[in-house]
């Protein structure tokens, strides 16, 4: 399988080497793959994106995009990738149409040459094509930025936190757009702090404090979850979380939506736990085996 992005021991530190933002990060993205960097703010996602898009230089290691070196071949890389930064970076006082035309011209192409790529997305913007980009809503800005990143038909696009601060419905729509782009053969590298979006990627890297904790397909990642996981519910959840911390053999206990998730190293006797919680005065107790999610995996890795 052809490799689109190859990252090898990449290193970046700030403030005279005091703060290591990216700490020997390595990964590969295959051609046509939808690859997700999943981690909280400050994990180093943006620094990785900025090195791969040749906006900052690494302090160590190397990386290539489409076989081009990020240091030596920066000019060629810039012409051949699409990049959507986390911060809105189009011209606020150009209209929607003008922004798109501008970016097409920059890359020596015209809007109608690659219109098929952005048709689905741009049609939603068409009613506002004469509006200045700065006056668009957050969701619309995002769609325009994606169009501008795609207009020169790049083989690979880098999307830095495109869904941060976006409501769940719009987030879902955005991921459906990404799926359609992937179907057209575009390699997509995307970052997000939302763990639930991880399952929509082909492969993911979980990242925290500049280091990659794990790389895998979402499916394999959850199937390799090492502990026994249970979802527990009772009438007083706040109290339940406190009590469960001291229960025997419990590795971890945390709120998980409607339930609390409790992990155990070995098989756990649910009847015994049920009786224990009853004795402690809980009512409406429910204990069921839980399927681990990416968020459970992340919590497990953070605790290690």
């Amino acid at each position: 399988m052809e490799i689109s992005v190859s990252v090898n021991q990449l290193l970046k530190s700030y403030t005279k080497g005091e703060k290591t933002a990216v700490n020997h990060v390595s990964f590969e993205v295959k051609k046509g793959e939808l690859f997700g960097l999943i981690g909280p703010d400050g994990a180093g996602k943006t620094s990785i994106f900025r090195m791969l898009t040749t906006l900052i230089l690494p302090d160590g290691g190397n990386a290539s995009v489409n076989g081009l070196d990020i240091v030596k071949d920066y000019g060629k890389i810039r012409m051949s990738i699409g990049y959507m930064p986390g911060k809105f970076s189009l011209y606020p006082d150009l209209t929607v149409e003008e922004n798109l035309g501008f970016f097409a011209t920059l890359f020596n192409t015209r809007v109608n040459e690659n219109y098929h790529l952005i048709k689905d997305i741009y049609e939603q913007l068409a009613p506002f094509k004469n509006r200045r980009a700065g006056k668009l809503s957050g969701g619309m800005k995002q769609k325009l930025a994606l169009c501008c990143a795609l207009i020169h038909n790049p083989p690979v696009i880098f999307l830095d936190e495109p869904t941060t601060g976006v409501d769940p419905v719009s987030r879902r729509e955005f991921w459906e757009m990404l799926k359609r782009l992937k179907d057209q053969g575009i390699t997509i590298v995307v970052s997000t702090p939302y763990m639930d979006e991880a399952t929509l990627c082909d492969r993911i890297a979980l990242i925290q404090e500049g280091q990659i904790l794990s790389i895998n397909t979402p499916k394999n990642m959850v199937s390799h979850y090492p502990d026994q996981l249970f979802a527990i519910k009772a009438d007083n959840m706040y109290h339940l979380l406190k009590i469960m911390k001291t229960y025997k053999n419990v590795l971890n206990i945390y709120a998980f939506g409607e339930y609390a998730h409790a992990s155990f190293r070995e098989d756990m006797d649910t009847n015994e736990l049920y009786r224990y919680l009853e004795e402690k005065g809980f009512r409406d107790i429910l204990i069921i085996p839980a399927k681990p999610t990416i968020e459970d995996c992340f919590i497990k890795l953070l605790n290690n």
Partner: peptide
């Protein structure tokens, strides 16, 4: 107003402990 945006899953839960 969206106090936990971009916060890691463990710290997000510690934040909720404080809310409780």
């Amino acid at each position: 107003d969206e106090p936990t945006g971009g916060v890691d899953p463990i710290t997000r839960r510690q934040f909720w402990d404080m809310i409780y």
